[in-house]
Amino acid sequence: MSLTPADITTIKITIKLATTTMIVSLLLGGPLAWWLSRRDTLPRRVIAAVTTMPLVIPPTVLGFYLLFFMGPFGPIGKMFKFFGFKLLPFTFSGLVVASVICSLPFVVQPLVNAFEALGERPLEAAATLGAGKLDAFLTVIAPQARPAFLTAAIMSFAHSIGEFGVVLMIGGSIPNVTRVLSMQIYVYVEAMEYGQAHLLAGGLVIFAILTMMAMQMLNPRPKKTPTDR
């Protein structure tokens, strides 16, 4: 028993999806988390609540609504049609959009916590030294929030590897385009081809454990010094 060519293709697509999702959700989630971590106002609270929705709504339900919104009858689909773009459902870009929405809570939460913990003081100090806002963010805040960025990156990557329900709806399970690993395992299980399912699922478990270990190694706890006691 070994991996079929179809299995290998799904693994490649899955890794491509997870990597793209990680990059896009950090680029979006970083500034969003920064904005959310500043003053506490009502709109911010609403947006903060909205970003946690993917954790609350069952994936297939979320998938159905995304499909509807991005489809030809939905507002986003209509907008895409108006500008002459290809509609998102059943494309790799559509998968990325869905996957980013699902990973956003895993990116935003750790970053908001880290930014809040840093507080205003490092920024004020940077300002007195003449640093602009962006400069201060990149040279002062980002390095200090490095562990949180690492957590966010790995969580979004890992989560999109395992994501199933939403991707299933938006992707349409097209071989070589949108069929990902989790779907392939599901099909094997439902078709009662347990051997092949175990092989892929086993690989997934090993991968997940290695990822989590890598996260801990890249993000070492500060060594205890005598003065810490």
Partner: peptide, 10 residues
């Protein structure tokens, strides 16, 4: 699920 794919018009 196939029904959902068609109902949404996607």
């Amino acid at each position: 699920q196939t029904h959902s794919l068609a109902v949404s018009g996607a």
